[in-house]
């Protein structure tokens, strides 16, 4: 294996972005495993990709749009029945720290 491609500190940062809390053992293990994968993935650096456009979708079709006609809505009780915590017809969550961006 060549140089380290992802550090433990970067893994800590990535976990926070993804809202995951990893134990020390998980962090050590994942750092090594991610590094190994990224090292394998680096094989594509040998390819000349300069002139190629990225593929976002495997196939491109004509894109028919949806007519602006109201359809069925979900039954609120059926939906809220699945929720972990409900109050007054709404989803209840612990305090939210900070505004939305």
């Amino acid at each position: 294996m060549g140089q380290q491609r992802i550090t433990r500190a970067e893994c800590v940062h990535v976990a926070a972005l993804a809202r995951l809390e990893l134990t020390d053992e998980e962090l050590d293990r994942f750092t090594g495993q991610l590094d190994e994968l990224l090292d394998h993935v680096a094989e594509v650096e040998a390819l000349d990709l300069e002139a190629l456009a990225p593929t976002m979708h495997p196939l491109l079709f004509p894109n028919p749009l949806r007519p602006d006609t109201p359809g069925e809505v979900l039954n609120r009780d059926e939906v809220l029945d699945q929720a972990p915590y409900v109050e007054d017809g709404q989803f209840r969550v612990p305090p939210v720290l900070g505004e939305a961006p």
Partner: peptide, 23 residues
């Protein structure tokens, strides 16, 4: 619009909470 950007539930101001929803 009459409906939401990506689905057919109504685009309407107000209403009882969580009544203009779809999957």
């Amino acid at each position: 619009t009459a409906t939401k950007l990506f689905s057919a539930s109504p685009n309407r101001f107000g209403g009882d909470p969580n009544t203009h929803i779809d999957p």
